[in-house]
Design a protein around this nucleic acid. Sequence first.
DNA 1: TAGATTGTTAATCGATTAACAATC
DNA 2: TAGATTGTTAATCGATTAACAATC
Lengths: 224, 224
Amino acid sequence: MSYTVGRDPSVAESGVDRPGEKLSLGVAARLSRYLQVLTQARKIGKLTISSQELADYTHVNSTQIRRDLSGFGKFGKRGVGYNVESLVTQIRKILRTSGQHNIALFGAGHLGTAIATSDIFADHGFRVVAVFDTDRAKVGTQIGSLRVRPNSEMRKAVEEDDIVVAVLAVPSSAAQDLADELADAGVKIIFNYSDALLQVPPEVTVHTSSPAVDLLYALYFYLT
Amino acid sequence: MSYTVGRDPSVAESGVDRPGEKLSLGVAARLSRYLQVLTQARKIGKLTISSQELADYTHVNSTQIRRDLSGFGKFGKRGVGYNVESLVTQIRKILRTSGQHNIALFGAGHLGTAIATSDIFADHGFRVVAVFDTDRAKVGTQIGSLRVRPNSEMRKAVEEDDIVVAVLAVPSSAAQDLADELADAGVKIIFNYSDALLQVPPEVTVHTSSPAVDLLYALYFYLT
DNA sequence: TAGATTGTTAATCGATTAACAATC
DNA sequence: TAGATTGTTAATCGATTAACAATC
């Protein structure tokens, strides 16, 4: 079954001089990875970072890192490394995620509360602008600066706040129904913290968090 | 230019007849991924699954999935698909993570509580056997069936319960000191939920959870 | 300068894909 | 049988790596 990409070999691959070009899955994933470390590094006041340091933290080969970056410009200084601040800016530009993005959070339990009050999303330009819960006891309470709202207000919020991303911190049993409603309301990306296997229309992307699987992977390399 | 396959057939790569052979990073990552979906599918009572269905959920090409699996044995039935239950067992065997693994959790805040009371780890053979917190007000309280203990009991727990994996749900400011202690105590895998950039000795592996980066990645493909 | 680290090349290796016979 | 789906081949493409000149 082919979705017919039919890549024209005469079309340049790297994207540096072709801003309309889509990055390959691998490059986009690695750039995101670099961004994670760079953001952390910036937080602790690091001014420059070498490809070798980035390699140590990301487990991506240092040559590959230099290669990935040099495809978009000469960001580094020989003998010195990369300026952390400017590299963050550059990568965000390449990934076209420099702006602010509003996200809606579903579930005001322990997990939802942890997400809403942490700055892990805020550091990357995501802002939780609405928290929903079906539990009447929770509706109306405050989490940080946000008031917990009933799910019935979801559509309104999605439209008003231009919400593309929904984060699901709800029980597995509630996840599919919610995903259906979200897809219908026009949400495009669902970040799923439950272990439900979500069925969504093709225009919607589901990312399911699975720390246990990440652990299994890490454990494999410890055990062998 | 030679079209020779280059691979010496006597040096098998696949691991099926070479249990001592290490999987490549890519194969191990993909197998973990399949396992995640299979575990979810099993939960909803699915008996068989085709490589195409697995492809839809994992975004890995179906041919690649069949290829990955066929390297270890003939697990599927033509015209039918793969038996979910038996494939879970096979992959866990391949990843050598069939057993139970004890993990220690640090931080009894909202995130820690969410982790300790969810079954996302339990489903994959991980068991939270100890919860620690530095806050005296929290020490002694119960989370599920576990009593929150002071960090000073960490070494004892690591030894007694043979703990290889630590999960950090603590503030970034506390993460590095804790990581140092854990490495010193012999913990090999640190799953870091804070956004601290952890420095650890080479024998220790750090995995930092970064949902925002996963979101950026998903967003890139939505925006382009 | 001397040391460090980038940017880039060239070679190899592994991943990816389409296609299809085998077979349930 | 007829339809579906695996297991496998063969080809191509992208990732990975070592090496090193350029240069900060």
